[in-house]
């Protein structure tokens, strides 16, 4: 369990003065991850994306720790190289410190263009934590669909129109793809559960192997809501069971947040302009489908929890 009073004594590794939007969830995630990591030296690798461009506009960097970016699709591969260098230089005595490695990527850099390099790095068992700040579309280039974009959502490359209802496909389940890599630690969490996020980051960093955390990140611009609601929406994603907060530790599932009462998905959808068109009578079936998918996945997750803990 993390403790805010204690965390507040740690050095702040992400300074103000970065150019993320007001109320940006990526800033919250990056800060909280770094709070959790600040008790050890850490080297951060960033995939190209909102977080990277906004925090390091030359000649200003918001990062107070060693930070590296090279391209979009290769955060995990470059982090592999850094981690390999660490092993080599530790052997030769050029490095004597205990260092941790974190890679950040958005859903574009993680679910899509960076999936191959992520899969490779995980399979090779590099000791690193990969954090996906998942805002469910390519926000940096202006809200284009990704394979993480949920069914029905408006994006600029899967817009709704006279014949289309927004994205026509369900998102892929990347967290489960990572579980299938048989890595020691995979987790999902959301903005709004700071304690869960920070605890998970600490667990991941203490794991001697590859680890992955998928954090859903409301984006005020791409999702269409007021900036003060970023955390509220993160919480709603969990309270509706759309985005279960769970972890898989060495294959054992644990649902960390079980809402007492599952809120209907409408409560989440209606706050975001990207789903506005779904409230037209002719699109009702999409909302029904979204709710059915949530219910099925939530039930499946409980079965997994039960099965893997027998």
């Amino acid at each position: 369990m993390a403790n805010l009073k204690e965390l507040a004594t740690r050095p702040e590794l992400l300074s103000g003065g970065h150019r993320l939007c007001a109320g940006c969830g990526a800033g919250i995630i990056a800060r909280q991850v770094m709070m959790a990591a600040a008790d050890k030296p850490v080297v951060v690798t960033n995939a190209t994306g909102c977080l990277e461009v906004s925090t390091t506009i030359y000649p200003f960097s918001a990062w107070k720790t060693s930070w590296f970016h090279s391209a979009f699709e290769n955060a995990a591969a470059s982090c592999s190289g850094i981690e390999a260098a660490y092993k080599a230089l530790k052997r030769t005595g050029k490095v004597d410190k205990d260092i941790r490695f974190i890679a950040f990527g958005g859903d574009g850099g993680t679910y899509d263009i960076g999936l191959q390099s992520l899969s490779g790095a995980m399979e090779r068992r590099h000791r690193m934590l990969y954090v996906c700040y998942n805002n469910e579309a390519y926000m940096n280039t202006g809200i284009q669909r990704s394979s993480s974009t949920p069914l029905g959502a408006y994006t600029t490359t899967a817009p709704n129109g006279k014949v289309k209802k927004g994205k026509e496909q369900v998102r892929k389940n990347l967290t489960e793809i990572l579980v299938a890599h048989n890595i020691p630690y995979v987790a999902q969490t959301a903005i709004g559960y700071w304690n869960d996020l920070i605890t998970k980051v600490q667990k991941a960093l203490d794991t001697a192997g590859p680890t992955f955390i998928n954090v859903i990140q409301p984006c005020r611009l791409g999702w269409g809501y007021s900036p003060e609601d970023t955390v509220t929406l993160g919480r709603l994603a969990v309270e509706t069971c759309l985005w279960p907060v769970y972890e898989v530790v060495n294959g054992k599932y644990k649902i960390n947040v079980k809402p007492k009462e599952k809120k209907p998905i409408i409560e989440y959808l209606k706050l975001q302009s990207r789903f506005k068109h779904l409230f037209k009578p002719e699109n009702e079936s999409v909302i029904t489908e979204i709710q059915r998918n949530i219910d099925e996945h939530w039930a499946w997750l409980h079965l997994m929890e039960e099965d893997t803990n027998k």
Binding site: V43, S78, S80, G81, A84, Q116, S117, R124
Partner: peptide
């Protein structure tokens, strides 16, 4: 050799890993 050999999954990742390693301080 004392080399850390990374058998990557593509050439793109090969050079990416070398870039990371070199930036980290290694001869890659």
């Amino acid at each position: 050799v004392a080399t850390e050999f990374v058998a990557v999954e593509s050439e793109h990742s090969a050079l990416s890993a070398c870039i990371g390693a070199s930036a980290a301080g290694a001869r890659a």
